[in-house]
Write a protein that binds this DNA or RNA. Structure first.
Lengths: 211, 211
DNA sequence: TGAATTTTTGAGCAATTGCTTTGTTTTTCA
DNA sequence: TGAAAAACAAAGCAATTGCTCAAAAATTCA
């Protein structure tokens, strides 16, 4: 258990780069589908196209792969909300955020499901991130939105629950993809278009102040 | 593989009744947290307070417990939507549905998570239900809502995506419970109250036709 | 009561789990 | 080129998996 120099950042050879990314890609596929406990190292190794011991040569354990994925995920997850900022037109500013989140659900459905799986299982590897950086960011943006509300630029709404509803409606298109595909017969592109139209109407109506 | 009399409905003794329900309760707790693949028969038996072979005396396999739970779930899941029907006040009719769904998320969070887990994993035991009864019901109610929209009684919206947004926003309070609890400091009762106020505003604004 | 039936479980099975050992192959670079 | 280092994998480890067996304990009911 020696770990004097916590980071001995040997700059990663080309092979290391490639294999670590193969493993992370495989981990994303497998963990997002079966959750941490439902996934096996064999599945990971197969999906990554390498032997089990070789996978464990790059990551010390199954959990290490999972943690690495979650850390990477957090950044991308927070990014669109970070970009939400002061604006002369708060409604459009919020709608841009909605559209970015919807686009992310479409572009990165596996990431969305990985996240959903982790939360569903009680966030055993993520509760620090939730109570720390995520909460701070949400508090900050909720205050911003509350300000708009106080100024009468948007309707009077609870900013936290607004954010929750943006998350839930947009991520739904990734997480419940199978359900939506079973109910709607249109192709994905059309579903996405309809979703965007609907969500634009949904949040614009909600945010527009009443006279 | 004989199965001449498919149903030999011996009417279940008191012991059978009790133990089957103990097992289903245990299955709900375990499967809703870890998904099917992430749950073990040992966990089920422990949660049910009985030995492993005894559990398997009542259900032939781990999968049988899971399937039984999903079948039970489907009915309860569809019920509130079934009740959505013709009304002279469509907006309130839909808002009643929203409130019922939110109440269900609060009363039966484990059921919600069981469902979410199954969908996330690709609905291996549920895709028939989705493409069959669920789709039919949603088609029917979407037509009803479309009618209201055509008559100008509610705003012009895509009824399918309206339903998806009701599902996602309400179920979010069960499925992402851990995340919400990490962000909000208020107690559950207050969160539920705020959620209800917010969702009422959200869907009323959306559904109210523009002049 | 007591014989038949139902319920329960300790022990155990083959297969799978996460991970290690041990050694071979490939790559690097002096 | 060749020796050191890095990359790889066959075999195997103890523990856990889903499930079975055989027999004991509890219950039912004539």
């Amino acid at each position: 258990m020696q770990k004097i120099n916590a980071q001995k950042k040997a700059p990663l050879s080309r092979i290391q780069e490639k294999n670590r990314s193969l493993i992370l890609k495989a981990g994303l596929e497998v963990f997002s589908k079966y959750g941490f406990r439902g996934s096996t190292v064999d599945q990971l190794a197969n999906a990554a196209g390498m032997s089990k011991p070789n996978l464990l040569y790059y990551f010390p354990s199954k959990e290490a792969v999972h943690v690495a994925l979650l850390e990477e995920l957090l950044e991308n997850w927070l990014e669109p909300l970070i970009e939400l900022g002061p604006s002369t037109n708060p409604i459009d500013e919020i709608l841009v955020y909605v559209k970015k989140k919807l686009a992310m659900s479409r572009a990165y459905p596996l990431e969305s499901r990985l996240y959903a799986n982790e939360i569903l299982q009680g966030a055993p590897n993520f509760s620090d991130a939730i109570k720390g950086p995520l909460k701070e960011l949400v508090d900050e943006k909720a205050a911003l939105i509350q300000g708009w509300s106080d100024e009468g630029k948007i309707a009077v709404i609870n900013p936290y629950h607004l954010i929750f509803s943006i998350w839930s409606t947009t991520q739904h298109y990734a997480d419940f993809d199978v359900q939506i595909g079973g109910i709607l017969s249109s192709d994905k592109q059309e579903i996405t278009k309809d979703a965007e139209t609907y969500l634009e109407h949904l949040f614009r109506s909600t945010l527009t102040p009443k006279p």
